[in-house]
């Protein structure tokens, strides 16, 4: 499954970088690659079953346990 995802992402990524390369927008190309890799890694971690911390839930714990801010 993860290989299918990698192939699909590689195809989408390759199609996307053509535009900045054609226009010679090198900064945009770097930003594109960084954001694309970040998104791809996030998705692949999900597919591989690696559990990431739940962002909002962790923040809530911080507010509740550390700052003791709640309506209760």
């Amino acid at each position: 499954m993860i290989w299918v995802e990698i192939i699909l992402l590689a195809a989408v990524g390759a199609a996307g970088i053509m535009e900045p390369i054609k226009k010679k927008w090198w900064k945009e190309l770097v930003v594109y690659i960084v954001i694309f890799l970040l998104g791809s890694v996030l998705l692949m971690l999900q597919t591989a079953g690696i559990k990431l911390p739940y962002l909002i839930d962790e923040v809530s714990k911080f507010f509740k346990i550390v700052l003791h801010l709640s309506y209760d």
Partner: peptide, 14 residues
Amino acid sequence: PLGLVFLGMAMTVT
């Protein structure tokens, strides 16, 4: 690319 980030974040935000 940013949509992919949102997609990944949507799975792990809560």
